[in-house]
Design a protein around this nucleic acid. Structure first.
Lengths: 239, 239
DNA sequence: TAGATTGTTAATCGATTAACAATC
DNA sequence: TAGATTGTTAATCGATTAACAATC
């Protein structure tokens, strides 16, 4: 099982780099840069130029051999590939602290995902306004999803309710679910779920912190507490 | 460059699975399961048993050949490996909507990362209480970090201020930074940053949604809008 | 032209999976 | 014992990197 490649035959790792390319290119665009070579762009993202060209090669035809990429052409090309050349209306289910935080995060809209509704079942929350949008009863969600042809939903309810919400979203016609609840969701084929597990992130970080502390101890056993070494080398980022 | 392996010589992919193993094991523990085989545990996580054993093999000695894993032993072993056998005190800098949402997310504390302070520079926020903790002036952060030997910091400030906050955290002695600001941080060697880029997540999702829609069109060109296919197969999860 | 660049294929590297001896 | 299990190494698979012809 799990043989057939999902989604357009592009590896997962490449998909995750597309938004980073787009972001950097938009930054260049904003400061008026017209041309950029694979080497320049790759360097600014701390990856190899050949990897960038290899990634682009899945889609092909961004430039011609010999000529660098034109920022003005690459930005819309990537937007189209990612699927945000047209705004992608999005809803949030779960108007607790996290849901409200996301609803307030205007960047989502600017990035191409305008909020078309935030829903909850809690009567105390329903009616409350966030950035000019009233929190609505979850019961109204399906109608709005169908009316506005909404494909994207964000789940920010407690883990115990997440599956039920996902079922209702799928039933209404949503195809992509961004799940912040710390639980796995079962969805039918033809629906994509992306889990945003905060606990995984902070634990992975914790593991690395532990490793750093251990290596510090072994390198300089008589280290002073409170004097953090004042090293000044290059950073150590993650995805 | 970038040759020497980071963090205890364990591949990134394995590190990210450790929290998932732990989570599932805690669930088993809660319902009173005593023994679990690699096959059972792997199946519930939708991975191969050999991968799980391979992962465990980096640390070694969780069981003996022929005997399944004992949940009661594996849980603390993994907690120790991840570095959360002792609570890891954590601070949040940035008490906006997201910062407040994280501060309210009690799971963080339950997972081993008790909140030892939430800070901001906005005088309107300073003093406001969240779960019994007052938002403090960012200026007080270094003292508290040093006093409580805090190693972990979460950044939820706007992108423009994130680097400055990171610098101050590092200066104070923080070693692991969980960065929610959509910008790259430069930190000295011996400090780990993990970027939580929401935009990347939702755009990767968008790409896949676009792929699904395209494949739907090519498979059934005369598809009705509003009739979402009613497929009922197995889900299609991501990490 | 010479130097720089892309698109594209081949080589390398690392991660996943399979296989199996040792053990219960 | 027979069947099931782990730890561990080898085989496979996929992703990254290098190389280079074609082009400007």
């Amino acid at each position: 099982m799990r043989k057939k490649r999902r989604g357009c035959d592009v590896p997962e790792a490449t998909i995750h780099r597309l938004p980073l390319y787009l972001e950097k290119l938009k930054l260049l665009q904003a400061i008026g840069v017209e041309d950029v070579s694979s080497r320049q762009l790759a360097e600014s993202l701390d990856i190899k130029a050949s990897q960038l060209r290899h990634d682009f090669h899945y889609f092909g035809g961004f430039s011609r051999p010999g000529r660098p990429y034109q920022v003005e052409k690459l930005v819309p090309a990537l937007e189209q590939i990612i699927g945000i050349d047209e705004p992608v209306p999005t809803i949030i289910v779960g108007a607790g602290h996290l849901g409200q935080a996301l609803a307030n995060y205007q960047n989502l809209g600017l990035q191409g995902f305008p909020l078309h509704g935030i829903f909850d079942v809690n009567p105390r929350l329903i009616g409350l306004e966030i950035r000019g949008q009233a929190i609505r009863d979850l019961a109204d969600m399906p109608d709005i999803v169908k009316r506005d042809h909404i494909l994207m939903g964000i789940i920010t309810v407690p883990a115990a309710n997440a599956q039920q919400v996902a079922d209702r979203m799928v039933e209404a016609g949503i195809v992509g679910i961004f799940n912040f609840a710390p639980t796995d969701l079962k969805v039918p084929e033809g629906v994509v779920v992306r889990n945003e597990r905060m606990a995984v992130g902070i634990m992975a970080l914790s593991f690395k912190v532990k490793c750093i502390l251990e290596s510090r101890l072994s390198e300089s056993p008589a280290d002073e507490v409170g004097a953090p070494g004042k090293t000044t080398a290059e950073g150590e980022g993650d995805d």
